[in-house]
Simulated scan of single mutants.
Amino acid sequence: MYQIIVGIDEDEAHAKLCAEEVVGMPGDGSEKHVTLIHSFTDNPSGASATQLAPVREASDVLDEAGIDYDVTESSGDPAEAIIDAADDVDADLIVIGGRKRSPAGKALFGSVTQTVILNAGRPVMVTGVPEDA
């Protein structure tokens, strides 16, 4: 079984693209297990990850492809949450969406993607920016 962690942010297009990349990976849907993770940095309404549109979008793509998945959530630093989730299941791959940002923007504001790539200790697939973005 191929274990895949997919980091889900607030962007529905990113979530869909990440899930579509998992679907497009070699192998049958039954050979993959995906953990969708969303880390709340602010959640005044008390929503759960399964209530978020991006998580539902990724779930729909995986459901349609017959890929088994679960949804997990955390709070705090998203990069740390993604890496911890990958460690917990000994993931074979982490999938996250990238953003168009200048090098200066990354230096000033940080980057979840960059932090995961540098600290995960396992393969990371960055899906890039959706075509319509």
Rank of each mutant, 00 (worst) to 15 (best):
H38V: 06
F40K: 00
T41G: 02
D42L: 07
N43P: 03
P44Q: 06
S45D: 12
S45L: 14
G46K: 02
S48C: 15
S48K: 15
T50Y: 09
T50H: 05
Q51K: 11
L52F: 03
P54M: 09
P54K: 03
E57K: 02
A58K: 11
S59R: 08
S59C: 09
D60E: 07
D60A: 10
V61P: 12
L62Y: 10
L62A: 11
L62D: 06
E64N: 05
A65P: 10
A65M: 05
I67R: 14
I67F: 14
I67P: 12
Y69F: 00
D70M: 15
V71C: 03
T72K: 06
T72I: 09
E73W: 06
S74P: 06
S75P: 03
D77Q: 00
P78T: 05
P78G: 04
A79M: 10
A79W: 08
E80M: 04
E80F: 01
A81F: 05
I83F: 01
D84Q: 08
D84L: 04
A85S: 12
A85R: 11
A86E: 08
D87N: 15
D87T: 15
D88G: 02
V89I: 09
D90W: 08
A91T: 02
A91D: 07
D92H: 07
D92I: 08
L93D: 05
I94L: 11
V95A: 08
V95Q: 09
I96E: 11
I96K: 05
I96N: 05
G97V: 08
K100W: 09
K100Y: 12
R101M: 11
P103H: 13
A104V: 09
A104D: 15
K106S: 10
A107K: 14
A107Y: 14
L108N: 02
L108R: 06
F109T: 02
G110I: 01
G110L: 03
T113D: 09
T113V: 15
V116M: 09
V116F: 02
V116A: 02
V116D: 09
L118S: 12
N119Q: 15
A120H: 00
A120T: 00
A120Y: 00
G121W: 15
R122E: 04
